[in-house]
């Protein structure tokens, strides 16, 4: 599927990071970008919007990115959606935990627009 046909869900409790990620996605010419402030809000959004890619933070109140990832992978309808974790949590144990929960890829903050674009391309090409 081409970027121009895809809807991306951006999840982060900080509007600053959502804006930075959205700016990269807009430059890549995705069809539509929807956003949520935490995992619970994102999960509710998945039920009303057909999403083709999720880009989510890890540390968020209400429901963390890891909990959200686990719920997505446990749901028959959503489990195959590519899921990129964009986070400051990049210690070895965190990465192992996310990989076990079947994260599609992992972007460590701070990041450049090019590095995020590269991870997105890799994930989409594998999906």
């Amino acid at each position: 599927m081409a970027y121009k046909d895809m809807v991306v869900l951006v999840v982060d409790d900080f509007s600053t990071m959502r804006r930075i990620v959205k700016s990269v996605l807009r430059d890549l010419q995705f069809k539509e970008i929807v956003e949520a402030e935490n995992g619970a809000e994102a999960l509710a959004m998945l039920k009303s919007v057909k999403v083709d890619l999720i880009v989510s933070d890890w540390n968020m109140p209400v429901m963390t990115g890891l909990e959200f990832l686990k719920k997505v992978r446990a749901d028959e309808q959503f489990k195959s959606i590519p899921f990129i974790m964009v986070t400051a949590e990049a210690q070895k144990d965190n990465i192992i935990e996310a990989v076990k929960a079947k994260v599609s890829n992992y972007v460590v903050k701070p990041f450049t627009p090019a590095s995020l674009a590269e991870k997105i391309a890799k994930v989409i090409s594998q999906s």
């Binding site: 540390n59 400051a88 949590e89 990049a90």
Partner: peptide, 10 residues
């Protein structure tokens, strides 16, 4: 602050 703390902890 989140990012600097995370990078420092890493």
């Amino acid at each position: 602050t989140n990012m600097i703390c995370g990078d420092g902890r890493r």
